[in-house]
Amino acid sequence: MNIIVCIKRVPLTQEVDLEVDERGTDIRKDALAYVINDWDNYAIEEAVRLQEEFGGTVTAVCVGHEDDEEVLRRALAMGADRAIRVEPGNRELDGFVVSRILAKTLRDLEYDLILTGVQSDDHNAGMVGIMLAEELGLCHAAVVTGVEPRGDEALIRVELEGGVDEVSRIRLPALLTIQTGINEPRYVSIMGIRKARKKELSVINVEDMGLSEEDLTPQTVVEEVSLPPETEGAEMIEGDPSAVAGRIIQIIRERGVNI
């Protein structure tokens, strides 16, 4: 079973006081640490597990700059066989452009499954996977929490609203966007990542791919980025634990919850 995983590197934003940049259309990223997008980490793990069970190859693909190769190395260390980075140069990227670039990159590769994360930590749009499937004409499913290949099909579990699970069959090849929690991603050590340098990592320049100007033109324009306004209404409850608990119960009752 040959699997392609599309991954991305995102800023680590927890615990950080984000600031909007001068242009007002993005956040300041210069002082942020970058990590693998959490959903993509689960997608790589799932691909590697499927490969360990059913054989085949795992290819990790990333549209990004040289710094972003770090997440490809991590994927290689986790067990991917090879990696491809598509260098976008200075082009502005949105979900649409990335999905078109990926589609072009993957079109001539052999695969039974394409995995992406459900969404990325930074923009949370959740578009790339689905648009990529559409562009490649593949069956697809989103928010997948379980994959079991069965011949030329796969049994998949999808998370629906309200915690309901839906199990269905999907024809291969297919594209699945992977939800966190589908597995427990393995730790890869620093030495593991360093050793993965020996594995193949090829770089393609987007300009050499023969994509049309339309494919490379973003379809979304960010007008403004702002921090949510600070709202009032926080109440600090003080006192000994039993008094605090009493006050919390009182508030819950006041808001109409029967307990």
């Binding site: 680590l12 927890q14 615990e15 640490a33």
Partner: peptide, 18 residues
Amino acid sequence: FNQVLMHVEKTGNPFGKP
């Protein structure tokens, strides 16, 4: 450990604080 070690690598502390 995964997150703790990742935090140390990326931020130099186990909490992932900047």
